[in-house]
Structure formats: structure tokens, C-alpha cells
Amino acid sequence: MKRTRIFRTGWLVLALVAALAPVYWMLTISLKTEVDQFAIPPKWFSFTPTLQHYTDAFVTRSFGQYLLTSAIVAVVSTFFALLIGTLAAYALTRFRLPWNLDHKLSLWILSTRMFPAIVTAVPLFLMMRDLRLLNTKLALIIVYTAFNLPFVVWMMRGFFAEVPRDLEEAALVDGDSRLGALVRVVLPLVSPGLAATAVFCLIVSWNEFLFALVLTQTDAAMTLPVGIAGRVTQYEIKWGVMSAAGVVAMMPILVFALAMQRYLVRGLSLGAVKG
């Protein structure tokens, strides 16, 4: 019994170290002087920290601007995806449409999420070029709204289905309209689910890379991931600056993810696993 416990603890510690050490290594590189960065043997703990790379990235270079763009695009697209998606999800859970249409529409909406990104990236680039929207935040906001929409519909469908119908029927009997019942009775009950869905959309938009790479190439429009990628593929790489940008890009995501751990599995499996 004792041996199996030691065995198990050993494996778990190994998994923990494997998961966290690489991220910690990036954190140290972002805080090390160039001399310490290239030190052999590697310095994991004993080095003099400096914030020089952070000021270099976010004050001297344009990473501050990329950060702002990422934030604006993520927040605005999340708002629209939630608004449009929640209404659709409500209709698809609460109304029986003829020819089983509610079910078929839900599946169709889900299937649009299954397209590999590169399949839509090529025509979306051409469409945005024709509309003269390349290198604008608007293009990314539009694309991310559509990208997150199927996800919102499926997550919210699950949350609406968990609310008993009797509650809104009582509101309807009391003379409330359908939308009144949705806003005053149902939405407050699903608000934890709504918040989890919102955080999920924020994470997905914040992390998204391929569409942003294709649609934005100017400093004024690119998001943080595209900005980082542009620096990594250059010949002379500023490792400290890269790592500082990487650390800043991951911080809000980690805070969000920890805050909504409970819904994480459900979100990542599009509502298929209730976790």
C-alpha cells in the first residue's frame, strides 16, 4: 500500500514538473540579463532579475499597441458572439420548430465550427481584401464573432436546458412577454454559465493566431500573437523581449482559466463532457 502511494506521488510530481518547468524557464529568460540567459549550466534560480526586457518590449517597441489591439478585438467580438449566440441558443432550446428544424439547425451550427481554420482563412482573406478591411480591427472582430458563435450556441443550449421550464411559464402566466421572461427569469439563472462562456470566448480570441496572421500585417492592426510571431521568425532574435511578450500574453489567460476551472472541460469539449 505504501509503495503504491510513493509510486503514484512520484508520477504526479514528474507530471507537474514537466508541465510547469518549460513555462517557468520562459519566465526566467524574460527576467535575466543577456549574460545570464546564455549561461551554461542553465541558471534556474540564481540570477539577478531585471525588468529591462519588459520596458524594452512594451515601451520602446510596439508590443503595448499589440496588447491593446488584442484586448479590444477579444472584448468586442466576445460581446457580439454572446449577444447573437445566446438568443439563438434560447430559441433552439425552448421552441419546437417544424421538421425537427431546431435539432438540425443546432447540428449545422456546430458543424461550421469543425472547419479547419486554413480552409476559411484563404477565402476570408480575399473577401476582406475586396471589402478593403485588411489590416483593420473590424475584420478580426467580425471573423472572431463568427468563429465563437457556434461555441456560444452549444454552451448556452446546455445551460438553458438545465433551467426548468416551469419558472418562465410562471412568468408568462403573470403577463410577461417571452423576451421579458428570458431577461428577467432565465438569464439570471444561467449567469454563471454565461460568464463561463464569455471567458471562454475571450480566451479563444486572445489566443487565436492563424486568422490574425492572415488578416493583419501592420503594426497598427496586429494582435499580440502575430507581433510575437513576427519577432520569432526574424534572424536575430531578442530572446528577452520575446519572453517578456510571451509572459504578458499568457498572464490574463491563466487568471481567467483558473477562475473558471469548473467549466473548463465542458467548454473545451463544446459542451459534450459535463466535467
Binding site: 518549460p22 480566451i203 510575437i228 510571431a229 499568457m250
Partner: peptide, 24 residues
């Protein structure tokens, strides 16, 4: 604690994953 720590790799922006492993 274990669960929370394991979330870190999968929530990272993929671009940051690339950076992390180029450094490693």
C-alpha cells in the same frame, strides 16, 4: 493544485507555446 497546474500548458496561447519550446 495538481489539476490547476496541468491547466497551464493547454491554456497557453499556441504562439507562446512555440516561444517556450524554442527557448527550451
Amino acid at each position: 493544485l495538481f489539476r490547476a497546474s496541468l491547466l497551464v500548458p493547454m491554456m497557453l496561447p499556441t504562439v507562446v507555446v512555440g516561444v517556450v519550446w524554442r527557448l527550451m
